[in-house]
Nucleic acid binder design. Sequence first.
DNA 1: GGTGTCATGTAAACAGTTACATGATTTT
DNA 2: AAAATCATGTAACTGTTTACATGACACC
Lengths: 192, 192
Amino acid sequence: MIQLTYDTEVEVGLISINHAILGLLSHKPMTGYDLKKLIQESSFLYWSGNNNQIYKALLELLNAGFVTNEVLHQDSSPSKKIYTVTSAGLDELRKWVLTPPEPPEFKKTFLIQLAWADLLNPDELNALLAGYEQEVRTQLLLLKGQAGSDHYVNEGNAKGITLWKLIHSNLISTYNNELTWLAELRHELGLT
Amino acid sequence: MIQLTYDTEVEVGLISINHAILGLLSHKPMTGYDLKKLIQESSFLYWSGNNNQIYKALLELLNAGFVTNEVLHQDSSPSKKIYTVTSAGLDELRKWVLTPPEPPEFKKTFLIQLAWADLLNPDELNALLAGYEQEVRTQLLLLKGQAGSDHYVNEGNAKGITLWKLIHSNLISTYNNELTWLAELRHELGLT
DNA sequence: GGTGTCATGTAAACAGTTACATGATTTT
DNA sequence: AAAATCATGTAACTGTTTACATGACACC
């Protein structure tokens, strides 16, 4: 059987973590380690930010000519590679931002549990709902706690800061929507 | 290097698609082919419903003793394996429904595009927003179109039907929330 | 003396998607 | 004549996570 592999040299359709990294680097040159922390802390960059993804993405961006790197040797610390976006990289970023958006995707395992909650008695159902509410509230607190941390990356760019605040408000409203739905659901099911 | 593999015989923590399949089978014995169609059409069972997942899951459920199957030979059609939940399977399902819920997960690639939309001029930004609105509206129409198809699986169980309607309303409200957020965003950015 | 930060990278496993393969029958 | 439905399964690949590995320094 003939193996059909894709062209690895000329990347056409990069996947989005590469673009997210390109975007972060466009604000400020950084190391993979810096990117890792930013992605892990970010609420809307939904990847885990593990090494494998980031160092692989940086290699791909480098091979595609979208970034360059400069090695900094430091004593008493491992040397670091500081990545900077090239003008080709900026073009690519702009091009990607203009691509037709995809619909949002939701993974709500809780809804699947709820689908078979007719197996439970009222107390158990109540506990299940309370558990979900708890989780959602925790996410909301986390979001509000790191309110600044996301858009402080965006220093000095007023337009950018406004956008990042709007992104933040999107996430907040999404979680709040779960809470109001939960209240309606309790009402509908006649639970106290 | 020593290979650390997990125990494949006694499954402890099955992943959720297995439980979803267990749940579907608890309503009615079915073939893998039937399950595939149900999952593909369902709005809240978020898997693609490809063969690989389903037939693998059915094998695992079978090995765990949560389902049994009966082979039906038919002429003028391939033979089918009809899977039925065992009482151990029902126990497992109930146990899983009671496990502490996880928070919902969102993948909104659009938000990442928006994060770097300061690279765009107003017309381009407008087009981007319109594209997202279009996608969300399409999802809403799809949802409303299949309004019945999801909970018709749940024949004859009043409690179950109510729950499935509530699940449906959760998804509707989630998409609607995106639309109201979009309106606020346009207002905030002073767009017509 | 153990744990955490800085900084890079690799290995192995798990999860998920697309596409392939078969073969009879029905529909367009 | 081509495409879709029924029905099972496999192969190959992509994507993602967890854990491993190194080594100096700082902190408790």
